[in-house]
Amino acid sequence: MQIYLPIADVSVNWLLLLAMGGGVGFISGLFGVGGGFVMTPLLIFIGIPTAIAVATQAAQIAASSMTGSIGYWRRRAVDMRLGLVLAGGGLIGTVLGVWFFNVMRRLGQLDVIIAIAYVVLFGIIGGLMLFESLRAMWLKRKGIRRPARRSGEHPWYLGLPLKMRFHQSKLYGSVIPLALLALLIAFVGAVLGIGGGFIAVPALIYLFRIPAAVVVGTSLFQILLTMVAATIMHATSNHSVDLVLALLLIVGGVMGAQFGAIAGRNLRGDAFRLLLALLILAVGIRFAGDIVLKPEETFSLVTLDN
């Protein structure tokens, strides 16, 4: 049952990898997220070197967002124009992210940076989502309807130069804040080995008022483009993409996602957001433990390839 991963240089049980791919695929199908934020920590946990886990994840997310994008594309729920603008910003973010990743790896701070980033990012986003979903549930119970979206209101950052019209997303405004948002998410994504869909989707809805019908498809399309770029850049600059590992995770993930999607249809919207928030918070807390508690072994060892 053991398989030797040629780039990671470790021997692992391939059934375990398929099962992990399946489990995370289930979560990603259930919540409509990439699942990278669960998979990367899991890979590190079973002994895959951090750098290999992050770089290989890029290929896995490319595959799952490809599946997702095609599905939304068939339902005409992808705003190509917006997706390309986001991908433009995302490309720059990926270049910066991979560069930062390589520098931190050389300095020996990659593990700590990744842990801190998970704690801060996941703490904030998980906390916000938890608050939001609890409030929504509470308001619903008391029978209060949320105020409808007010038209005519226009956030200042859409008034910046370089305006563009996105028909499908019912948006007319500057591409600068859009590209900047994509840049930030792609930067974080390249460093942490996540797609960032769970950040992009709420940001596009709340900050840019993009209709929910197109937002997930468009975000997936953007993730697809940036993760393809991230895979190639990681492979070119740090040679850390393990093809065998990626293929096993993809095959497991593809199957898990199908079951997750079916299970997701029976989940209520509020419960869905609450569960996702708890999941994100749990990952954040897991990493907080890593950097706050005194480690059992305070020394670590890296072998350089000379």
Partner: peptide, 12 residues
């Protein structure tokens, strides 16, 4: 790596 990811994603 990217191409095989895309092909597998499409196959799914």
């Amino acid at each position: 790596a990217a191409a095989s990811a895309l092909v597998l994603g499409w196959l799914a």
